[in-house]
Amino acid sequence: MNDFYIILTGILVAVSCSILGTFLVLRKMAMVGDAISHAVLPGIVLSFFITGSRESIWMLIGAGLMGVFTTLIIEWLHKKTKLQEDASIGVTFTFLFALGVLLISYFAENIDLDQECVLYGEIAYVPLNTIMLFGLELPKAIVMLAVVLILITAVIFFFYKEWVITTFDAPYAASIGMSTVLWNYILMSMVSFTTVASFESVGAILVVAFLVVPASAAYLITDSLPKTLFFAVLFGIISSVAGYYSASILDVSISGAMATAAGIIFIICFILQWIQKQIHTSPSILQAEEQDV
């Protein structure tokens, strides 16, 4: 049963992250996602300290606010002070992450959070921490991740049209009166929710792998949004399952193995699209040369 819970946790993280990651990659905001997943750390520590619990809804809300706050700082630095975007991202997330680490050291006696857990999580402990729900004994992390996944799926599904338009044609979206800023902030808060829900199991850095890697791999080999979403989710699930079993064979970090499996899928997709490009481009180059002659 423990195996099942761990794999299920991995799949829930992977599916939520892949869906959001697809939009991050398409909006060219992969590093903003990276920044947010680091920057929510002080939010997590503070709400953990204040409420004293990990599953609290306040923790999700606090982290959501923190995510929006991070986005606001990055945009403020970029637009108002004319600092280039990559530097704005770099300055903001390192500052907030450092603040988070300091808060952990400061509260060290009162909370059981440690730096390693924050960085790469411990998915193997997920089944140990359980909650009674509908007469079933379920791991808390799974309940929280399931809630987040349902929330994300609902928001994406019901506002699919809005997501498509604001992602692919922001000027058009603005011209028909859609607020691209609002949708951007909604996306960023969902990224923060997911980071918080996942951080216990996979940690703050590896969650970036789940956000970006399956989505980029899917984006490489597809050319429509539904297909990209489908393959991103599929790749996420495959890497969770494959990662879990290879980790238990090699006796290494499970979440690390899951992220590495996603990396291998990315390499395969990269080579596939490269071969495809070679096949597609080489005849046309020949034709062009013939025309020149």
Partner: peptide, 18 residues
């Protein structure tokens, strides 16, 4: 930037495994 995010997270994951 996407390439950076992919590379850093996968390399870090390999590092954690090792």
């Amino acid at each position: 930037d996407t390439a950076i995010a992919v590379v850093l997270s996968v390399f870090f994951a390999v590092g954690i495994i090792l």
